[in-house]
Design a protein around this nucleic acid. Structure first.
Length: 501
RNA sequence: GGCUCCAUCGUUUAGCGGCCUAGGACGCUGCCCUCUCACGGCAGUAGCGCGGGUUCAAAUCCCGCUGGAGUCACCA
């Protein structure tokens, strides 16, 4: 009767080795990124190593495009890895599709030590056996081929059958201390001997994932909750690996809560909110998105939720992760992102915004001197009022267009007072003789003419001017914008507003 | 169905036996600031799923129930 004899690692501090090992299917999912982030933060916190491995053993679903996206995602986010694809390391290669020979060697060792055995029964035959023995079909395989004689095997082989390889599962309860959930026990017999190698020799995830973790010396496996129930299987395999001289220990496991979408379901790949790149394209910045993601199951302290990546790395503790599933709340994510945008220096903000401005056609591919100048002036005014960088182009576009190309938007026109033309006319008169074209002077000239002399409420007085200047209802502060535009341009816009009505 | 996990405001999170008449944040509402929109400030809204224990004392520990989720592949 097989028993678990392998020790569990006691590694801590710089001995910690964690990994992120996605399958390259589809575009990066925020839940997946959260997993990467926690592993990374744990490595940075402990001073251990973060390994980035690719599990591409399913040629039908995996794609090179998806692989590239995974790498691109981590690079964009600033989640760096110490060993893995691209950067290399002592356990190359880091793509499972390139590790075939390694697996074959391990399979031989496992076979030699008797932990793996040949299984010839097909799915239908297994089901038929269960029905015949009035055993519940859901129970699956009945371990009936554990002790097949050589004659039996030869007979199957003679039929032209090829055996799959199954792991001989220990006959005992399997208990482990989950890093986020505490002690978990799966009773003996919870699962049957399972297939680890297909007929023909292709190893399955169930084999390859623990094998690579063992070979790469992974000490802490932090992964999604969906893998919780396969953990005892993996422990069983680790034990076989240990007894075959392949593994030195069983790692410790920590199962991260799900990231949920609408309703009570896991945030699905179909849901656009799950798509990392959609958030990036809207103008989430890595600091904001990562800050939010780390809040899904963790918190830095009771009364704070805006923090830097460095603070995350200094404080992250897997033991403090909350086991409850967390919902992805876009509103909160946006709020956090907005906070991080405000934390950016003006230069940084401009640099990051440029691409959004260019793809919206607001700024030329190679910004002109004038464009750079406008950007520098308007950046501090804009930074305070956007939630994603993609909000910037619409907000500042009017500063970059020719005066005669300015479009006055419908909703801006709608809320203007009756005497808008009179107001704008008076504004022109007041501004015409202004010597120094500064925010302060513009403001006091307009205040005097429109508020004091005309007796208009500020709101009524400046609304029409704002619309004439920008074509919009909402803009960065008006007088600053007029200063940026310059006197000629501002007056021209006021003039043409009056003319057009 | 078996096994496993989970359960604090609408959402997220603090809480790990007394600091809790349960704290923060997002959202929402109101007010202040104000040239619009934001920012900022102030105030308000709203929660320990239910039932038993243990204890001088329970959101916190135990048991049961209920509800939710995951998993039971020759996918990963």
């Amino acid at each position: 009767m097989t028993q678990i004899t392998a020790p569990t690692t006691a590694a801590s501090g710089t001995d910690v080795r964690v990994r992120f090992c996605p399958s390259p299917t589809g575009t990066p999912h925020v839940g997946l990124i959260r997993t990467a982030l926690f592993n990374w933060a744990y490595a940075r916190r402990t001073g251990g190593k973060f390994i980035f491995r690719i599990e591409d053993t399913d040629a039908n679903r995996d794609s090179e495009e998806s692989y590239d996206q995974l790498v691109e995602a981590l690079r964009w986010l600033g989640i760096d890895w110490d060993e893995g694809v691209d950067t290399g390391g002592p356990h190359e290669p880091y793509r499972q599709s390139l590790r075939g020979e390694i697996y074959q060697e391990v399979i031989q060792k496992l076979l030699a030590s008797g932990h793996l055995y040949e299984s010839f029964l097909t799915g239908e035959e297994i089901e038929a056996r269960n029905i015949a023995n009035s055993r519940a079909v859901q129970l699956g395989y009945d371990n009936s081929e554990r002790d097949l004689s050589e004659d039996d095997k030869a007979a199957y082989l003679a039929e032209g059958r090829q055996p799959a390889l199954r792991l001989r599962v220990p006959d005992q309860d399997i208990t482990f201390e989950d890093l986020v959930r505490g002690e978990i026990t799966f009773p003996a017999g919870s699962f049957p001997d399972f297939v680890v190698v297909r007929p023909g020799g292709a190893p399955l995830y169930t084999l390859v994932n623990p094998v690579d973790d063992a070979l790469m010396g992974v000490t802490h496996v932090l992964r999604g909750e969906d893998l919780l129930s396969s953990t005892p299987r993996q422990i069983a395999l680790y034990n076989a690996l240990f007894e075959s001289g392949v593994a030195e220990f069983i790692p410790r496991f920590g199962h991260l809560p799900f990231v949920m979408g609408e309703g009570n379901k896991k945030l699905s790949k179909r849901n656009p909110e799950s798509n990392l790149f959609l958030h990036r394209d809207r103008g989430f910045i890595p600091e904001g998105l990562l800050n939010y993601l780390s809040l899904l199951g963790w918190s830095i302290s009771a009364d704070r939720d805006i923090f830097s990546l460095q603070e995350l790395c200094e404080n992250f503790d897997i033991g403090q992760v909350n086991p409850n599933p967390a919902r992805f709340d876009l509103k909160k994510a946006e709020s956090i992102n907005a906070s991080h945008i405000r934390l950016l220096s003006d230069e940084d903000f401009i640099e990051r915004t440029l691409a959004y401005l260019q793809s919206a056609g607001v700024v030329s591919g190679q910004p002109t001197e004038r464009e750079v100048q406008i950007l520098a002036a308007v950046a501090p005014l804009t930074k305070e009022r956007v939630i994603v960088l993609g909000d910037v182009p619409a907000m500042v576009a009017f500063l970059f267009v020719e005066d005669d190309a300015l479009i006055i938007e419908e909703d801006a026109l709608k809320q203007l007072p009756e005497n808008s033309n009179e107001i704008v006319r008076n504004a022109m008169t007041a501004l015409l003789d202004l010597q120094e074209w500064t925010t302060e002077n513009i403001q006091s000239a307009l205040s005097q003419a429109l508020v004091e002399t005309m007796g208009e409420k500020p709101r009524n007085a400046f609304g029409p001017v704002r619309t004439a200047i920008s074509g919009r209802r909402v803009t960065p502060p008006l007088f600053e914008c007029m200063e940026i535009l310059g006197k000629d341009s501002s007056l021209a816009r006021l003039e043409s507003f009056v003319q057009s009505r």
